[in-house]
């Protein structure tokens, strides 16, 4: 039992963060809160990739003469890391666009609360 927890606890936490983020997006009425929930979802996914790429006892892919070069188990796969760099950039750009939209909405309606917004739009 402990072994399962030890092996997979990171995934449980990530699922929790993912769900918290989704909850924020769905339930929270403030648009800024929705954005925050969205960035939590994104962080959870990015971390998920990093966690899944982790191997116990392995290190970064920098050639170490002390280690065997041909044993792949001794090195972490660098590909997920590089991919997540891209994903982080994408996430930040998305946030930038959403903030721009929020500012436009606020300037026009002077509020970020969804019920109030819908009321004012009628």
């Amino acid at each position: 039992m402990l072994e399962i927890i030890k092996g997979y606890y990171a995934y449980f936490f990530l699922v929790a963060v993912f769900c918290i983020g989704l909850f924020g997006m769905m339930v929270k009425r403030n648009l800024m809160k929705k954005v925050m929930g969205m960035s939590m979802v994104q962080s959870a996914v990015i971390l998920f990739w990093i966690v899944s790429a982790f191997k116990d006892g392995a290190t970064v892919t920098v050639l170490d003469p002390a280690r065997a070069v041909e044993d792949a188990d001794l090195y972490l796969n660098p590909l997920p890391h590089t991919l997540m760099l891209t994903a982080i950039v994408v996430a930040v750009v998305t946030l930038g666009v959403s903030f721009a939209l929020l500012i436009v909405i606020y300037r026009r309606y002077r509020t970020l609360e969804e019920p109030l917004l819908l009321e004012k739009m009628q």
Binding site: M84, V92, L95
Partner: peptide, 28 residues
């Protein structure tokens, strides 16, 4: 072990996005 991603996340995720957030909040 993802040092490079960690740095990016710290700078961009914690830093830049934090600033974004605060700017957006001050503007709204």
């Amino acid at each position: 072990g993802a040092i490079d991603v960690a740095f990016t996340e710290a700078v961009v995720g914690a830093g830049a996005v934090g600033v974004f957030n605060i700017v957006a909040i001050t503007l709204t």
